[in-house]
Every structure is written in C-alpha cells, then in structure tokens.
C-alpha cells in the first residue's frame, strides 16, 4: 500500500535567456504514496507550475529524476488552471478529446464518459457547447475530460483559481469528494492555504525561488463529516492554518 506512485529525486530546473539564467527549482525531492492527496503550496512565482510540468513530462529536469511506479504503469492526468474546453466542440466531444488524440476511443471509453457525466450531474449538458455552462460546470467537465483517461496520478494546477469565491468553494468541495471517492493519487498546487488544508493528506511547503522543499506537514483532522467543507470546521484547522501561514510569510519577508 505504501509503495510510492511517484518519486522526485533532487530535481533542478532553470530558465534561460540571453541575460542569464533564472533558477526555478533546486534539489527538490519528495514522494507520493498510492491514494494520497498531496498539496504543494509556496510563495507566488516560486516555480510550482514548473514542477508540475516536469512531473507531467512536458519539461525535462536539468538534473535529478522523476520516477513513476513501473509496476502499475501510471498514467498522468493534468488539470490546468482554466477549463480550456474547446468552444467549437460539444461537451461530449470535449470530454472524449483525450481518447480521440491517443486513438483509444472505444465503446468502453464512451460508456465510462457517459457514467462520469451522469455521476457529475452533466448528462443533460452532453450536447451543449461550453459557452452555455457555468464556470463550475465547465471545471467539472474538464475534470471528466481528465478522468476519462483513467489516470493513476492526477496533477491539479490551481484548478479553481479562475472561479469566483463561492463557485470555488463549491467546486473544490465537489472535486475533492470525487477524487477521494475514486481513491486516485493526486497532487494539488495552490496558493490558497485553507484549500490545501481542507483537501490534502499532506502539505509540501516550498521556499521562494529557487524553490526547494521547506517543510512537510501531515494533515490529520478530526472530522464529524468527511468533506472539504466539513474540514474547515475541524478543531485543528485554525492551528494548521497559522502554522502554514507562518512558513509562507517567512518566505515573503525573508527576501525583501
């Protein structure tokens, strides 16, 4: 059970331009276990998204390595900051974009997509264009698009940041529940500390650029009901929040 799905070893990465190099990540190491929900927080602009792109294989690290569990052939799903549904396609065609690209479209995939649509309350909107859906519904459709690929590891790059506050609470609760229920391993990047506490099992705090792992914080909440909204009412919530805030604000003040 405690076999890591993902292991990052001493990852370094810098951006280059003619004026010089900007170090984004130095010596980042951590691992994620199966079924775990890991949140990564850090000061803005510290290279969180870069780290996710490296894990997804869109960028290759300058040194260090990303190890995925070979026995299970982990597929990676990636959720971007915005839904990026293609507005000229119907929701149904959008949801099936992944299988269409990887040429794995099959009746089973379609059945899965249909099931996910009805699970997430979007069956009625199957043949609608994205423009006709609300922000929260679009984000759920984007999640379905990712889940249809049956990923073993889900990467979430501030997936709620484009939503307004109320929708954001609703959708993050929604999506948190969906991910918990499916038992999928997930890495969430966020700058919203309470979101991180309410969703994650463990929080990784990164330093300011060049980012490295500053602290690992396990989250154990005593809950009446197991939901992200309920988590915000847990007795430990406030203390964890203060602790996290201290770690992050140190990073902001330390440099300037």
């Amino acid at each position: 059970m405690n076999q890591p799905v993902l292991e990052c070893k001493n990852i370094c990465f810098s951006y280059h331009n003619l004026k010089g190099e900007t170090k984004a990540l130095t010596d980042i190491s951590f691992q994620v276990n199966k079924g775990e929900f890991l949140a990564i927080v850090g000061p803005s602009g510290c290279g969180k998204s870069t780290l996710l792109s490296i894990i997804a294989g869109l960028l290759s690290p300058e040194s260090g390595e990303v190890l995925l569990n070979h026995q299970e052939q982990v597929k990676i799903g990636y959720m971007l900051q915005q839904d990026h549904l293609l507005e000229w396609r119907t929701i149904w065609k959008n949801v099936l974009l992944g299988p269409e690209i990887t040429k794995t479209l099959s009746p089973e995939k379609e059945a899965l997509a249909l099931k996910l649509l009805s699970d997430y309350g979007l069956s009625k909107f199957k043949d609608k264009k994205p423009g006709e859906l609300s922000g929260g519904m679009k984000q759920r459709a984007a999640l379905i698009r990712t889940m249809v690929m049956e990923p073993g590891l889900l990467l979430l790059d501030e997936p709620f940041s484009a939503l307004d506050y109320q929708t954001r609470l609703m959708v993050s609760a929604d999506i948190g529940n969906i991910i918990r229920a499916s038992g999928i391993t997930a890495i969430l990047i966020t700058h919203d500390l309470s979101e991180a506490i309410s969703l994650a099992d463990r929080i990784l705090v990164l330093t300011r650029r060049p980012a490295t792992v500053k602290k690992e914080l396990p989250i154990r909440l005593t809950l009446q009901e197991n939901s992200p909204l309920g988590a915000r009412n847990a007795p430990e919530f406030q203390e964890l929040f203060t602790q996290l805030w201290k770690e992050i604000s140190d990073e902001y003040c330390g440099g300037s």
Partner: peptide
C-alpha cells in the same frame, strides 16, 4: 492560446494534434 496547446500535450498529443484539433478550428 498557448494553454490550449498545453492541454493537447497533457492529453498525450503531438504538434500535429495541436494543429488540427486546436489551431485550425480556432482560426476558422
């Protein structure tokens, strides 16, 4: 939109997919 192209790459597509699934339809 660069992010839309990134979406195609995260779904396992290549630049050919990016062109005919995103660039061409959005440029009609």
């Amino acid at each position: 939109d660069k992010e839309k192209l990134k979406l195609i790459y995260t779904l396992g597509g290549n630049s050919f997919d990016a062109f005919h699934k995103v660039v061409l339809p959005s440029c009609i």
